[in-house]
Amino acid sequence: MVALFVLALFILFIAMDFIVLKVQGKTHPAFEKVLSISGLSYVPEMEIKVPDDIVLSKGHLWMKKNKSGLVKLGVDDFVNTALGNISIQNNLSVGKELKRGEVIFEGKVGNKKLKFHSPVNGVVRSINSNSHDREYSDSYSNWNVELSSKDFASGNVTYFSGSEALNWLRQEFTKLDDFLKLHSAMPELVGATMYDGGKMVEGVKAGLNDKAAEDFEKEFLSL
């Protein structure tokens, strides 16, 4: 009897925890949607999450609609993984009207700039000035621009969410792997570097090559 009682208590607490999280609109870590990447040659093994309330656009910007109907935008995990420490620069001002496909901001990697395109038509409502010191591990809480947009609601945009987003990201990472293969000038060096746990040899750091930057934009950042 005591055994059953304690067991019931244990299960009750676990169940209650699930319910509490559900009510709060959060996901229990056991139920988070994650994509684990493995078996690629240049992209290391890792896990990528896509929160339930996030949608991804084809140009690798994430969008999240908040209660007041505004849409926050930011750079997704894929870009952060592939490019690493990018700093976002924009020339927008609040109130500016953006057309779908127009440049919304630029990301600076080394001394090269990559253009990101707005996935929706909309009006700039606010700009996050703190977004520079982003943390890699949390792409989805670092937004860059907030828009008010009608087509986000009307469903005129191609975007991915939930498991669809994970599937799409998997394809994108495979594509990235091929891309790296193609653009890699020194495969042995890269191989050796990866093998040693990714610690880079001092002094190899240099800027992006123009061609590679252009190709990356075309392959991954266009809508």
Binding site: Y42, A82, L83, G84, G110, L180, H183, S184, A185, M186, L189, V190, T193, M194, G198, K199, M200, V204, K205, A206, G207, L208, N209, A212, A213
Partner: peptide, 8 residues
């Protein structure tokens, strides 16, 4: 870092 090596 790998990436940066590749693109340079």
């Amino acid at each position: 870092e790998t990436k940066q090596i590749i693109l340079s």
